[in-house]
């Protein structure tokens, strides 16, 4: 059943983003920034965690999931490290994704050329 909800929730998040893009004058980059921030806020007020439990990758794969991951990471780190966790927690939780982006991004950029 999680597969169905992953599809539906992931799709719906993209629908909201598409509507923001088409009905405002924001660029795709602005929309991405906006949605990461929204993910962090929803994570902070405790609304995103149930969505992740419910829809799995449908909530973690779209970019608000990245904002949520950052906030969750901070929560975990503050428990063990205190206030220093505010600085270390976010990047620790998102380390895999960020490092992968840099390594894969660099590799692909060095191997491939843009096509028409």
């Amino acid at each position: 059943m999680t597969f169905v909800w992953a599809f539906v929730v992931g799709g719906l998040l993209c629908v909201i983003a598409q509507l923001v893009l088409d009905l405002s004058s924001l660029s795709p980059a602005h929309v991405l920034v906006l949605f990461v921030v929204i993910g962090a806020i929803l994570g902070g007020v405790g609304l995103y965690r149930p969505l992740v439990a419910f829809a799995g990758a449908g909530a973690t794969v779209p970019l608000p999931g990245f904002g949520y991951t950052l906030v969750e990471g901070i929560a975990t780190a503050v428990k063990t490290k205190g206030l220093l966790g505010l600085f270390t927690g976010g990047l620790t939780a998102a380390a895999g994704g960020i490092k992968a982006s840099v390594i894969f991004g660099l590799t692909v950029a060095l191997i491939f050329k843009p096509k028409a």
Binding site: F3, G10, L12, L13, A55, V61
Partner: peptide, 14 residues
């Protein structure tokens, strides 16, 4: 957007 976003999330779930 629904279809593509859903599909990519589905792949992620897989």
């Amino acid at each position: 957007a629904f279809l593509y976003g859903g599909m990519i999330s589905l792949v992620g779930q897989g």
